[in-house]
Design a protein around this nucleic acid. Structure first.
Lengths: 153, 153
DNA sequence: TTCCTAAATAGTAATTTTCTTAATTAATAT
DNA sequence: ATATTAATTAAGAAAATTACTATTTAGGAA
């Protein structure tokens, strides 16, 4: 049985608070999905989350995982990362918004702490009457080791 | 029967040239996928492309559409747009790289002619030994009409 | 506490996307 | 032209994702 760190419980509480504030219900399934991230490393796939959640709640449906991930992503609580081996999700602590460099060969994922969604783009959106609610920015390429393995020939 | 404009043929030829230069084969199916964009408006879905391609080549498999779209996207010939009603693809003429504002309500899609993939990000990638090959940037929100319909309450 | 209601869920079905394999075919050299 | 080879393909199976419907339940009100 995994032990949950204080840090993890803290993150969980903050996420639940966001849900509550926005009027969403705190169901055992929803709580379990959030808690499951603690047992999946930084990035969790849908299948990993399903497996972990079912340890405590065997009847949870796959749809519930997807539905909750979609909601959590809309609220900015989790981020989706598109990797060659399939998609994964990570919990984003409030105020730590960031983006990713993804290696298309091995799937290695690193954070970039600069965000393109600055005034320039918001102004561009405003000009057209768009009300911005979110954005996706991901950079693809070869990580250092795949680069030297594949390109030095 | 759709007539193809000179402009379309020109675009098609340029796309084929890119494929040839990179050593990819010009199969009838591949040519048909590219040509099909001419009959699908600016944005084409996988199903629309399949339907158009099958008018001339009834045995083309769905997998072929997907496989070629993946390749064309890797080469920067087409761009994928993630919309609430499903994904769509558009042909990007060389030198006209751009990004999109997507309305999450109605799916309306507009171009933004500024790209975040500037020196700043390349430098960030370089620092970590990453070799950048591509990127995704999409902005989501509500278009002018959905905005006034939904938010003015 | 009990009741009410909209939200959320399980279970299932449908759809979309990816993978596997054997056969076909375009491009190149002969 | 013909043969060779590696890329591409069709077909079917598998995996991932989304949609549908009847039922359950969290959270607020009485």
């Amino acid at each position: 049985m995994e032990k949950s760190t204080e840090q993890e419980n803290d993150t969980l509480d903050k996420c639940l608070a966001i849900l509550r504030k926005q009027g969403y219900k705190i169901t055992p399934q929803r709580r379990a999905v959030l808690a499951a991230f603690g047992s999946c490393g930084r990035f969790a796939t849908v299948q990993q989350l399903l497996e972990v959640v079912r340890r405590t709640q065997p009847d949870v449906s796959l749809d519930t995982i997807y539905r909750n991930l979609t909601l959590l992503a809309e609220l900015g609580i989790v981020h989706e990362v598109h990797r060659p081996s399939g998609n994964a999700f990570e919990v984003v602590a409030p105020g730590h918004h960031h983006h990713h460099l993804v290696c298309t060969e091995c799937g290695k994922t690193e954070c970039i702490n600069i965000c393109p969604m600055n005034k320039l783009y918001e102004k561009e959106a405003d000009k057209r009457g768009f009300f911005v609610t979110g954005h996706v920015f991901e950079v693809y390429g070869l990580c250092a080791s795949c680069r030297s393995r594949l390109l030095k020939k």
